[in-house]
Design a binder for these strands. Sequence first.
DNA 1: GTCTATAACGAGATAGAC
DNA 2: GTCTATCTCGTTATAGAC
Lengths: 236, 236
Amino acid sequence: MSTARGARARARIEVTAAIKDEARRQLAADGAAKLSLRAVARELGMVSSALYRYFPSRDDLLTALIIDAYNSLGEAAESAHSAVADDAPRDRWIAVCAAARRWALEHPHEYALIYGSPVPGYVAPQETVPAAARVGLLLIDIVRDAHRGKGVARIKLSAELTVEARRMSADLAPDLPPEVIVPLVAAWAQLYGLIGFEVFGQFNRVVEDREPFFRQAAGRLAHEVGLVYPEQGATA
Amino acid sequence: MSTARGARARARIEVTAAIKDEARRQLAADGAAKLSLRAVARELGMVSSALYRYFPSRDDLLTALIIDAYNSLGEAAESAHSAVADDAPRDRWIAVCAAARRWALEHPHEYALIYGSPVPGYVAPQETVPAAARVGLLLIDIVRDAHRGKGVARIKLSAELTVEARRMSADLAPDLPPEVIVPLVAAWAQLYGLIGFEVFGQFNRVVEDREPFFRQAAGRLAHEVGLVYPEQGATA
DNA sequence: GTCTATAACGAGATAGAC
DNA sequence: GTCTATCTCGTTATAGAC
């Protein structure tokens, strides 16, 4: 009986994985907007009503794919980071940025799913938040370490930004000063500007040798958040 | 006879505009992937085959919408720029960035069309290039002026980037040195990272008071491309 | 010449009866 | 779970109105 239950659980996991794999293939072919439970079922030789035992709606399947994508990206970034965990913060920052870029280039359709245009009619539930936050939290960790080691330069914030900056700091990293969290969040968004332009083809005929270009830009982003070599202290 | 031709030409322009307006409405509702000639025709009280007198295919209609969006954005940026044409390059830079952001927030679906996920099965023809380049060329102009006035700081490029940097410089702005064109292109991409995160909702619960945040970030981008106040010369 | 309407194709999705 | 009747779609051929 426990073996039967185990077998059933195993089967359920396998079918769930097969559904998501097929859904990812259709994502790549037709885009998230056209993802259809029926088409997935047909391709798997199932009937559409059977899919509802695994995903109660198309939106739930989409949510699962989105969470998987964020986790896959987060894992790629975290494992790249752990390989250089003892290096200078600036090098760790660049390693994480490069890992995010590599993942995006290897999974362009999943990248489009999480950082591209919103899917019409779909609203991401709160469930997606923890997975979505992984890369951001990693970048915060790196800057936090540099800040402890004083290897971080602070920036002057405009007066109109001080209230919001304090709120962001309290929300995201209470141990980091507002003058650090603002450029950090900006760099986070800018990183995905660089990655998105490459993945979505905006760099075609503009930037050709993209790896060194990206490394240079990621280094500038590190500088923007105050990460300087090796722990040489802060400079304005 | 010439009046007849004029009336026909006018009618053609009006119908073309009506088709594009309706297509834009459907774009906002269902996304570019689901844009359908038949649905547009139905909503306009025409028959689908009649649309082919105006757009030879669905992709041609999409292309027209894309070019219009780029031109609308380009116009917004250029008119914002001409209002501050005599200010310091740094202020002109920030004005153009702010205009691009405002346009994107006011036209989120058209922004998604040109800077979001690619439309599955659609490849943008070369026709779109001139319109797509307008904001970029404006940013180049601003940096060029600052460079003439020596108000631009050069950055050290990594050795691995020198060849590509020279190619980019020759291609995009032969009168600007590679050490300027690289951060300029990077800042261009990063600008759309900031805008995209706001338009696509990635800043929800992260950045709330977004206007001052954006201005701060745009100012940092200006700094990154070497624009400093007023023409106080170059610093590393 | 310029346009619109009718009809049809082949492909795919969908709803409901069974 | 299967089958069928009825939708949608992009696109083309054709015929006729202005």
